[in-house]
Design a protein around this nucleic acid. Structure first.
Lengths: 162, 162
DNA sequence: GTAGGATCTCAAGCGTACTTGAGGTCAAGA
DNA sequence: TCTTGACCTCAAGTACGCTTGAGATCCTAC
């Protein structure tokens, strides 16, 4: 097989960068934050174990989803950096990631649902809309704490319409 | 009714801040960016028409979802700031928002689905996983361009496992 | 052994999204 | 009227997430 696939092959920062699409400067920054790790050559250059590719890939996906790096670090949890993570390590991490993703997704879904209703009725400016009249409608349906931040408009449109 | 609910009542920046949970300094900043608008009193203080509450609430929701302010401005599109937006104005805006939200949600869902598989098999470190072996599995299922950025790891784990 | 691209550190700069502070004005109640 | 809290502008500062540049070293191929 291709010698590039040896399990213990170490990658240079340039190789990491090319393979993950993440700039070398960003990789150094991530290392500074403790998001990734590397070993050094005798000449002080970084060498990355292959499993770091996975970490970096997950970091860049998370970034695209708007997750702050602190959360990302969090999400990695106990996944080790010095040794190749075990099956169980990644399993635990997967669960953490799922949880974080679910949170984000459900926030989006809630907003989407509210907007969907509004596309039909144009209600973002109409008092008939439940979204904008939580006292009338939401209270009756036992809606929770406050519907997103849109709830900041709770009292709106009681007598407002023009 | 409560005089605070008069349709043409104007709100001070402090009232806006309290009701939306957005700091006054942030409101000024949004105005600078053209995301919200206000009228001024004779003494140069800002007064907000009530429909600005809606704009501000949407801005803060979008922010929570990681949308940059430039996108938010975009998403408001033609919704007028000088006059109370019409039914049609908000309808158009709702569609734009929905589109943006859908994009984000589907990206999250894709990642979630991949991780769901992984929770079962812990495959983030196992070569049997389709996610990590697009050549074996994805190619066969006709998977598209590249599965998120995790595809950066395409060549991984061909001989890797420890 | 040597040229030259890759890498190193450290400091500074940048874009986004604000906050803070100084110094001054406005507005509403006693 | 006077006071006092809310508000104003403008400049500077902050946090995050990097990038850029300088000056030096590494390392691989010839």
């Amino acid at each position: 097989m291709n010698p590039a696939h040896e399990p213990d092959e170490l990658l240079t920062i340039g190789e990491m960068s090319r393979r993950t699409g993440v700039a070398a400067s960003a990789l150094r920054y991530y290392e500074e934050l403790g998001l990734v790790g590397s070993v050094r050559t005798a000449g002080n250059q970084r060498r990355y174990p292959r499993h770091m590719l996975r970490r970096v890939s997950l970091i860049s996906v998370a970034k695209r989803l708007g997750m702050p790096l602190s959360d990302v670090k969090d999400a990695f949890g106990e996944v080790p950096m010095e040794s190749t993570p075990s099956h169980a390590d990644w399993q635990r991490a997967s669960r953490r990631w799922k949880k974080k993703l679910e949170e984000r997704r459900s926030a989006i879904e809630r907003l989407e649902n509210e907007l969907t209703g509004c596309i039909g009725c144009g209600c973002l400016s109409l008092k008939a809309c439940a979204l904008l009249n939580p006292d009338d409608a939401l209270a009756a349906t036992g809606a929770g704490p406050r519907r997103l931040e849109v709830a900041a408009e709770d009292e709106e449109f009681a007598g407002d319409e023009q």
